[in-house]
Nucleic acid binder design. Structure first.
Lengths: 229, 229
DNA sequence: CATCCAATGTAAAAATGGCGTAAACGCCGC
DNA sequence: GCGGCGTTTACGCCATTTTTACATTGGATG
C-alpha cells in the first residue's frame, strides 16, 4: 500500500470557502480537487481514485441529498457534509442518505481536519477489506479505479466505468434501463435506452471472453441488465 | 433484511443519561449493553462481538482519551463520543486518538441515532438476504428477479415473470381471469383470457415437474387460477 | 352411459419490437 | 489537425408476443 496523498474532492459553490477548505486540506497533506457544481463533483469522483468527498449541501444545480443518493449507488467513498443549516432534520436526512459525517457552519478548521483524518483512517482500513471485484479473468478495484483483465490493465472511459461500477455495486440484481440511465447519465435521461446497448456492448467487448455469449453482463429482455459474478 | 441486532456498548457514568441513550438505541433496533465505568466498558467489548461503542468522555476511573487509546490497540470497533465539552481541542484529541465521531451535549436524540446508523452502516458486512419463495424444487427470488429450478437458474420472459410474481404474491388465493389479465397486461386487457392459458402453460412447462399434472399452478375452472405452495 | 359443448390445453405460424452491431458525425483537449 | 470519446443514425437479426388453428378435458344432460 503506497502512502500517496489522499485525493479529496471539495464540492462547494462559494469560491472563497472552497479555496479556504482546499488550502487547509493541502496543509494537511491531501490533494484537494475543487468542484463548483454537483455535476463537476461527480465527474471528479469518477475521474480518479478518490479518498474523500467534502460536500456543501447548498449547491446550485442539484440538492445535496440528491448528490449523496446518486454517488452512493455506485461508490462507497466517505462523504463529509458541510452545511450552513444546523437543524437536526437536515443532519438526519444527510446521514441516512449515506453521508458519513456532518459539520455545521461555522466550523473550526481544526475540527474539520480532525474529522477528515478520522474518515481517511477508516477508509484506509476498509481498503484491505476488499473493495475489489473479481469475475472470470477480470479484476476491478473500484476504489483505485483500476480494471484489469488477465493481469493486463485496461482503459475504460468515464461512461464505461460508471456503468460497470453501478452494475458491480448491485451484483446479481436486475437493473432497469431507466435506473441505469439515471445513474450513469444523470436525472432526465431516463428514456433513451439505446445508449445502454452501445455501452453494454463495449463493456462486453472489453470484459467478456466471448462477447457474443456474455457470462457476466446479462440482458433481461424488456427490463434491463444484470451483472452475474 | 433480518440480520441480528447490532450489539452496542454504552459507556456512561450517569445512570440517567445511560438509560436514556440505551432506550433510544433499543427503539432503533439495537441491543444496548450498559457500562458505568471504563473498565466495565472494555470488559463488555471483550465479552462478545461488538458493533459500536458509545462513549462518554467524562468517566470516573479513566479519561476518555485513555479508553480510546487502550481499545484501539486491539480493536477497530467504531467509537462514537458523547461529551459535555464542546471545545475544539477536545474533539480533535478524541478523533485523532481513534474515535470515529464526536457529538457534544446537549444533543438531539434524532441526530445521535442518525450518526449511529451511519457508523453501523459502514461497519456491517453486506448480508442482505432477499425474500425468496420456494415450492417443489423451484426457488424464486423476486427482488433479484431470479428463478431457478433444482439449483439451475432458468430464464423467464417478462410476461411469464410478471404472471408468476402476481400468483406468488397471492399464494393459495383464487385469481380471476380478469384480475390476472389486468395485473399482467395492464388495464383494458380484461377479456382475452386466452393469453392466460398460453402463458400458464409455459410456466407449468418450466416450473412443474409434471406439466400435465400441475401441483402448484392450479386451474379453477370457469373462474381463474390459483397458486398452491 | 353416450353425447355434446364450452372451457381449457397444446402446437405452430406470423407480427412486433427489442436488441446488437457497425459506422458516421460532432465535440473538445492535446 | 489529430485522436479519443460521446452522440446520433441506420439496419439486420431474433426473442418475445400475438395471432391462428386444432386437440383435449370434463361436466351436464338426456
Amino acid at each position: 500500500m503506497s502512502d500517496a496523498k489522499p485525493r479529496v474532492i471539495v464540492v462547494e459553490d462559494e469560491p472563497q470557502i472552497r479555496r479556504f477548505v482546499s488550502d487547509a486540506l493541502r496543509r494537511e497533506g491531501c490533494t484537494p480537487i475543487q468542484a463548483g457544481t454537483a455535476q463537476q463533483g461527480l465527474d471528479e469522483v469518477v475521474a480518479g481514485k478518490t479518498d474523500l468527498v467534502v460536500l456543501d449541501l447548498g449547491l446550485p444545480d442539484m440538492s445535496g441529498i440528491e448528490f449523496i443518493r446518486d454517488l452512493r449507488t455506485w461508490s462507497r467513498v466517505p462523504i463529509l457534509i458541510l452545511s450552513a443549516r444546523s437543524g437536526e432534520q437536515d443532519k438526519i436526512a444527510a446521514l441516512d442518505t449515506g453521508a458519513d459525517d456532518y459539520l455545521a457552519k461555522p466550523f473550526g478548521v481544526g475540527e474539520l481536519l480532525a474529522r477528515v483524518r478520522a474518515l481517511l483512517r477508516r477508509h484506509r482500513e476498509d481498503d484491505d477489506a476488499s473493495p475489489h471485484h473479481r469475475f472470470g479473468d477480470v479484476e476491478a478495484d473500484l476504489s483505485r479505479r483500476i480494471v484489469s483483465r488477465a493481469g493486463q490493465e485496461l482503459h475504460l472511459t468515464q461512461i464505461e466505468y460508471r456503468l460497470l461500477a453501478v452494475m458491480l455495486a448491485n451484483s446479481s440484481k436486475v437493473l432497469t434501463h431507466r435506473h441505469l440511465m439515471q445513474e450513469v447519465w444523470g436525472p432526465g435521461h431516463g428514456e433513451q435506452a439505446h445508449y445502454l446497448r452501445i455501452y453494454v456492448a463495449r463493456l462486453r467487448q472489453k470484459l467478456e471472453s466471448d462477447p457474443t455469449q456474455p457470462q457476466h453482463i446479462l440482458t433481461e429482455t424488456g427490463v434491463g441488465y444484470r451483472f452475474q459474478p
